[in-house]
Structure formats: C-alpha cells, structure tokens
C-alpha cells in the first residue's frame, strides 16, 4: 500500500514536470512572452525592464531552474492583468468550478444510473431504444450550443432562470444542466452496456437460483460488479471538467470559475495567471487519479494496487 502511494505520487510528479516542460517550452522558446504581454508601442527600455522583472534576461537553463522553484513554492508571481498574486485568484475561482462540476456530474449520475439499469433489463425494448437514441442525441449536440438554447428557452422565452454570473444559488442550475447533459449521455450508455454484460454473467443466474429478490440481484450483485467502469467514467468526467472542459460552459454562462478565468487570462495574454491555472488543474487531475485508484480497490477486491 505504501509502495503504491509512493509510485502514484512519483507518477504525479512526472505528470506535473511534463506539464511544466511543455508550458516552459511553449511560453519561452516558441512564443515571446514579452511580445505577447506588452503593448506593441512600448519602448526597448520598457521591454528590457519587463524582461528583467520576469527573469527572462538570464540563460534558458537558469530560467528553467527558477521556473521549477516557483512551482515548488506554488508562487508564480503577480497576475499581470489583476496585479495581485496569481495563486490567490486561482484559489478564489477554483471552488466555483468545483461546485459546478460536482452539481453537474452529480445530476448526471442521479439520472444516468437508474435509466441505464432500466434500459439494460430489456435491451431492445421501447424504453431502451428511446434511451439509446436520446443519449446518442445528447452526445451529438455541441455543449456550448445546448447552453445557448437553454438560455433562449429558460431565460428569454420562459424568463424563469438567470443565465449569467454566480450571484444566487439558482444561477448554478442552467450551467450545471448544460454540464450534465453530455456526461449523462455517456454515463447512460456505459451503465447500460456494462449492466447488460453483468446480467449475462453466471453469478447472476446463481443469485436468482438462490431465490434472492430481483432488486437485490440487479441493484446489488450486478451493479457492484458494473461499478468499476462506471466509477472510472465518473472520475474521468470530473477530471475532464477540471482539466479545462468546464471552459465552454463557464464561457457561455459567464460562470466565474477557473475555466472562464483561463480564457480571460488568455485573451489578456496574462501568462503568469495561465501558468498558475494550468498547474492547479494538473495537480487536481493527479490527486483525483490517485483517489480513483482507492475507490477501485473498494469496489473490486480482486484488484491489486501496484
């Protein structure tokens, strides 16, 4: 167990180093951060001063070492746009993205799991075909477009829900719904197919032969066995959302999470804030991955943590 956590943490470090290297290469070697950040008409002195301030006048290896030091201290410097520590901004925005992800993925689970199970009970039946077609449709609609349609419907036509910002709890409904739909579609398909697989396993027949009630066999025996792929997908959806896919929903609904902040930082060419956001995302992804491995072990005792 200890070795397992150690291995995972090492892998996490490799991931974070990989991200570091890519961001380093992209921002320093391919692009010119000064050109990106300063206005075109700025003088040579201004440029040099700025370079010095960021430590860009030093040789590349020194820059890399300094960059790694920044990461180790979780201090990327002040945001160029908001003139305050970048990590402070990230910690302010992160809870909003986490809330959106939690409500969205939670909503998807609440509907997807029962729906998937019911479809799996009678594959090819009317309800099953409806579910399959519905989820294909959900998978095919672009998320940003669904968000816009929700705004048209609920805010413009029906005038019942707010569409932008995060002022009141009801502000989360539309973005969370938009977030939930593609996840719901993917999850329903997966729950359905893995439940169909499990219901055909011999142990299900034995469980029925033991006279156990239907609900217990389907919702207990089969569902727990199907739990592994289902949990994998749920974890994957959370990771996706934190790894940047929340950007789309946050942009459409002006939900001020880290996704929207990332886009704004990119628009304002605030490389320091962008770096802070990317690293936070990378660390969250690594942590969630480790947590998922423990959940797997809880579900399936056969797994060995290696």
């Amino acid at each position: 167990m200890g070795i397992f956590i150690f291995k995972r943490l090492i892998h996490g470090l490799i991931v974070i180093l990989g991200v570091t290297l890519i961001v380093f290469v992209v921002t320093r070697m391919v692009g010119d951060p000064v050109k990106v950040m300063l206005p075109l008409e700025s003088t040579q002195e201004q440029r040099d001063a700025f370079k010095k301030q960021l430590g860009l006048d030093r040789p590349i290896p020194v820059q890399l070492v300094n960059f790694l030091k920044d990461i180790a201290r979780l201090d990327f410097g002040d945001s160029l746009w908001q003139k305050r520590p970048a990590m402070e901004i990230v910690f302010e925005k992160l809870p909003l993205t986490l809330a959106l992800t939690a409500v969205g993925v939670g909503l998807a689970c609440v509907f997807a799991i029962p729906l998937g199970i019911i479809s799996a009970l009678r594959p090819g039946g009317a309800l099953d075909r409806l579910t399959v077609f519905g989820s294909l449709l959900g998978l095919s609609m672009p998320q940003f477009w669904m968000g816009l349609l929700f705004i048209l419907l609920f805010a413009v036509q029906l005038r019942i829900l707010p569409t932008s910002g995060s002022a009141t709890p009801s502000h989360i409904i539309l973005p969370a719904l938009t977030m939930a739909l593609p996840t719901l579609a993917r999850l329903v398909m997966l729950v359905r197919s893995s439940m169909i697989d499990e219901l055909n396993q011999p142990y299900v027949k034995t469980a029925f032969a033991r006279g156990l009630p239907f609900v217990r066999v389907v919702g207990g025996h089969a569902l727990k066995n199907a739990g592994l792929p289902i949990m994998t997908l749920i974890g994957w959806e959370v990771i996706r959302s934190l790894a940047g896919y929340s950007v789309v929903v946050e942009t459409v609904f002006a939900w001020p999470g880290i996704g929207l902040t990332a886009i704004q930082a990119i628009e304002r060419e605030d490389l320091i804030l962008i770096q802070a956001i990317v690293f936070t995302a990378a660390i969250s992804v690594v942590l969630i991955n480790i947590a998922m491995d423990f959940i797997y072990k809880l579900i399936d005792p056969r797994l060995k943590l290696t």
Partner: peptide, 10 residues
Amino acid sequence: AFPGLLLALI
C-alpha cells in the same frame, strides 16, 4: 493525466 484542453488553449 495532462489537463489537455487547457494546454491546447495555451
């Protein structure tokens, strides 16, 4: 395990 979309955006 990379935050793929964010990296892509940058």
